[in-house]
Design a protein around this nucleic acid. Structure first.
Length: 419
DNA sequence: GTTCTAGAAC
DNA sequence: GTTCTAGAAC
């Protein structure tokens, strides 16, 4: 659960009282990728919702210090909502529960495919601004993001078990909600036991391990390289190298493809809905190391890029792509970006990000090949190209000048929605 | 490369 | 007062 008011201190929370409406916005759990049949999941959800509402009748007529509460259940699937409507209409008329279909769907579309942590980081500011528009008196709104289930991860559903899990999930969500609005600390049930019995270390993503500096290509046998001292030898510039050596060790959502010669990864901080890096496995730190002998390499990278684009377009034909190289890359190992042209992404955060994909800073593979053919080498003037990154931002589609990143974001969304 | 935050811009 | 950027730190 993520409260985007989470930075509020307790005093501010105390100010919360009857005149405020506290809204919990939450998804229908498990009816999407969770694949629990609607007919099974919806009654379970409704029972817990009704249980919660009847237990906590804090509205304008009572003395609870919490204020009025409204539950807002959202789901993009109209069939799911219909099922809730039907289920709930059999009982009381409950004005404190609202069913919402297109809840900020457009604005939230950028989160698809992001890992949960990134969603949490990104969603708060967007949501806050949307809610300001949607409600004149927004009060406090706590928004629950649905678990980021990968379709490849879903296992067969055992109905009897999933029902129990589901009601537990809703209950703990409501418990956490109450704790947050009361300014109390929320401790998930059974957490203490767990930490005693299973002191198992949380699995880290390969990237995180890398970023912590465990990697040292010359002494991979040394276990002590996990110590603090080894961090000295690690730099973020090397973050891509691990993928080259052991692409098989990474999950599907990090490494998209590999063979003996190439590795294609999902960019860890995508600057658009779809953003990949195509890398040769042969060690080439930077583009200026290329010679005319590498024309075939560039050609093959381009073909790999086209192959990825083809596949992704089958999933979403609306996407357009470009591929290319940064003239002054930050990270070691030659990598070609394959990036969709929506540029809708919470990790596109600043002018430098924008200009690095939409100015001459970004070079087509064909242009690289051409230069290699003509000159036998590649050289990009660092000062010149870095200066391009500081230029005023312009929309890549309509050339309109963009003054701030939020303005750019909004503008890009309009293009995406064909407005 | 990202994160963090001071202070500029509004 | 709040939003946003830019530069230092990592």
């Amino acid at each position: 659960m993520h409260s985007f008011f989470s930075s509020d201190n307790k005093n501010q929370r105390r100010k919360l009282n009857k005149e405020n409406i506290v809204r919990l916005v939450f998804p229908s759990l498990s009816t999407g990728l969770g694949k629990v049949p609607i007919g099974e999941a919806v009654p379970v959800a409704c029972n817990v919702i009704k249980e919660f509402l009847s237990k906590h009748k804090f509205n304008e007529h009572n003395n609870d210090d919490i204020g009025s509460v409204e539950l807002i259940l959202y789901d993009p699937d109209p069939n799911v909502l219909k099922a809730y409507e039907t289920q709930l209409s059999q009982d009381i008329k409950e004005t404190r529960l609202r069913l919402v279909n297109e809840l900020f769907t457009d604005k939230m579309s950028f989160i698809s495919g992001l890992e949960s942590r990134k969603i949490l980081e990104a969603i708060g500011p967007v949501l806050a601004s949307e809610i300001k528009k949607a409600y004149s008196k927004p009060g406090i709104i706590i928004y629950v993001v649905s678990p980021n289930v990968s379709s490849t991860q879903s296992n067969p559903v055992i109905i009897s078990e999933s029902k129990k899990l589901l009601s537990d999930a809703y209950r703990s969500m409501f418990d956490a909600f109450l704790c947050i609005i009361r300014g109390e600390k929320y401790t998930p049930k059974g957490q203490e036991e767990k930490s005693k019995t299973e002191s198992k270390e949380k699995p880290k993503s390969a990237f995180d391990v890398l970023m912590q500096g465990s990697r040292d290509s010359s002494s991979s046998t040394s276990k002590s390289s996990f110590g603090k001292k080894a961090n000295k030898g690690f730099h973020w510039q090397n973050a891509l190298l691990g993928y080259l050596e052991n692409p098989e060790k990474y999950p599907d959502n990090e490494v998209y493809f590999y063979d003996n010669e190439f590795v294609i990864i999902w960019d860890k901080f995508p600057k658009a809905k779809k953003h990949f890096l195509v890398m040769p496995r042969r060690r080439i730190n930077f583009i200026d190391e290329l010679t005319s002998d590498d024309l075939q390499l560039i050609q093959t990278m381009k073909e790999k890029g086209e192959w990825v684009i083809e596949r992704i377009k089958q999933e979403d034909p609306k996407l357009r792509f470009r591929m290319g190289f940064h003239t002054v890359p930050s990270m070691k190992q030659l990598h070609m970006h394959v990036i969709s042209q929506d540029f809708i992404s919470p990790t596109l955060k600043n002018k430098k990000h924008w200009n690095s994909f939409t100015t001459e800073f970004f070079k087509d593979p064909d242009e690289i090949s051409k230069t290699l053919q003509e000159n036998g080498k590649i050289h990009f003037d660092k000062d010149f190209y870095e200066e391009l990154l500081k230029a005023p931002m312009k929309c890549h589609l309509c050339k309109k000048k963009m003054n701030t990143v939020p303005e750019l974001r909004e503008h890009l969304l309009k293009h995406w929605n064909n407005e």
